[in-house]
């Protein structure tokens, strides 16, 4: 957070990603228009539909809600659950906070990096997994914890985390 980012994309939906009808965005905007504080819920839904928040979608949101693009872009890049870049099919979010750290999160991270051959912020060449380091997921009772998609896995070891990965291959 707080760092400057270059605006990615050239404004058109990228090749190879799911094609989304730009009007789907207008529908989302229309459902929220007039509600105060609508920008976050709108961006959430747009990301659900498009998979990420490309420039063309942000422009459309800005236009629809009558906000400046810079305002919309500022919000889209502030929050860690929003992404302006496409990610892998499954995002693996590994908790790096202290309670997980002291229960062996680093070994779990090492195992994941070895297995997937990627570092934090990177996506496997087959586009399946993106590995991310995150702060506490709120499941520290079963530390160390990892979230894949919207599922949480706890009490992981370097061995069990690989078994978990198999569920996704």
């Amino acid at each position: 957070m707080g760092k400057r980012v270059r605006m990615p994309g050239n404004g058109a939906p990228s090749e190879g990603l799911k094609r989304v009808d730009p009007e789907a965005i207008d529908t989302i905007v229309a459902a929220h228009a007039g509600h105060e504080g609508a920008l976050l819920p709108v961006l959430r839904e747009v990301q659900e539909v498009v998979g990420y928040l490309p420039e063309w979608a942000l422009k459309r949101v800005a236009l629809g809600l009558g906000l400046s693009l810079s305002r919309v872009y500022g919000v889209a890049t502030f929050y860690s659950l929003f992404t302006t870049k496409p990610k892998g099919q499954y995002v693996i979010r590994v908790c790096e906070s202290a309670p997980c750290h002291v229960q062996g999160a680093q070994e779990v991270i090492n195992a994941l990096m070895r297995e997937l051959g990627v570092g934090f912020g990177e996506t496997t060449p087959d586009g399946r997994f993106t590995l991310e380091a995150v702060s506490c997921l709120g499941t520290c009772g079963v530390a160390p914890a990892v979230m894949i998609g919207d599922r949480v896995y706890g009490n992981l070891t370097p061995e069990t985390v690989l078994t978990v990965l198999e569920e996704y291959s």
């Binding site: 105060e36 920008l39 976050l40 961006l43 305002r71 860690s80 659950l81 929003f82």
Partner: peptide, 22 residues
Amino acid sequence: RVGAGAYVCGEETALLESLEGN
């Protein structure tokens, strides 16, 4: 209202900003 991932949004005034769509 569902947050979008930012620890600082637990701080009450940051939370209000976020609720307002900022």
